[in-house]
Simulated assay, not measured.
Amino acid sequence: MIEYSRRMLAVLMLAVAPLAAAAQDACPDRSSYAPARGIIADLGRIVAPSGVQEDYAAQIGGIAQWVNVRGQDRDNPLLLFVHGGPASPLIPTLWQFQRPLEEYFTVVN
């Protein structure tokens, strides 16, 4: 039974190998994404003179938490967004939907 399983695994690996190679060849080079990443970075940038745009790790309850602070004016009231977690990977895309809030609040995630 073990020998049969090994043979089946070998056949499966031989069958999948060409598919994996073809999929890798079909993927564009990562460096081709650089211009698009630059455009997205510019779209998300806070350029107001009194604005704030910071990302940092802070110890909260003894655990390192990533904090993102964004807003058009540091003197605006603070709006704290606490996600339902765990591991909400929203920080890279927050600027897309919270931009209007950043006019009136300093948003902390």
Rank of each mutant, 00 (worst) to 15 (best):
P92I: 03
I46D: 00
V16A: 15
I60W: 04
I46Q: 02
V107D: 00
I91A: 07
R70V: 10
D42F: 08
R37Q: 06
I2W: 01
V52G: 03
L9I: 07
L12V: 04
A87H: 07
P100M: 06
A23H: 08
F105D: 00
G44A: 14
P49T: 14
D29G: 03
P77F: 04
G71T: 02
N109M: 12
V11E: 05
A57R: 09
R6K: 12
M13R: 05
Y104A: 13
P86Y: 03
Q96W: 06
S50N: 15
G84V: 06
P18M: 09
Y33P: 00
S88G: 14
A23I: 12
V47K: 15
V47Y: 12
V108F: 02
L12S: 09
P100H: 09
P28N: 10
D29M: 02
Q96S: 05
V82Y: 13
A23Y: 10
E103T: 12
D75Y: 09
S31Q: 13
M8Y: 03
R99Y: 04
A87V: 07
P77E: 08
F81C: 07
R6C: 11
I40K: 00
F97I: 08
R7T: 02
A22H: 11
V67P: 02
D73Q: 08
E102D: 12
M1A: 12
L19C: 09
R74V: 15
V11A: 10
P35A: 11
Q24E: 13
S5V: 12
E102T: 05
V52Q: 01
I46K: 03
S88Y: 04
Q65F: 14
D42S: 14
P100Q: 06
Q53I: 02
N109S: 11
W95E: 01
I40S: 04
G62T: 09
E102K: 01
D25S: 11
L94G: 01
G51R: 01
E54L: 15
R30K: 13
G71S: 14
P77M: 03
Q65T: 10
P28A: 10
I91Q: 05
M1E: 12
A26F: 10
P86T: 03
G85P: 03
R99F: 04
G38T: 10
L101T: 01
Q53R: 12
N68G: 05
E3I: 01
N109K: 00
R70H: 04
R7D: 05
Q24S: 14
W95S: 04
H83V: 08
M13C: 11
D25W: 15
T106P: 00
Q98F: 15
P18N: 04
I91M: 07
D29E: 10
F105A: 05
V67M: 15
V69M: 08
L79A: 08
P100A: 11
L94S: 04
A21I: 14
L101G: 01
R30Y: 11
A41W: 03
P18D: 11
F97K: 02
S88F: 08
G62Y: 05
V69D: 02
S5H: 10
L94P: 00
N76D: 14
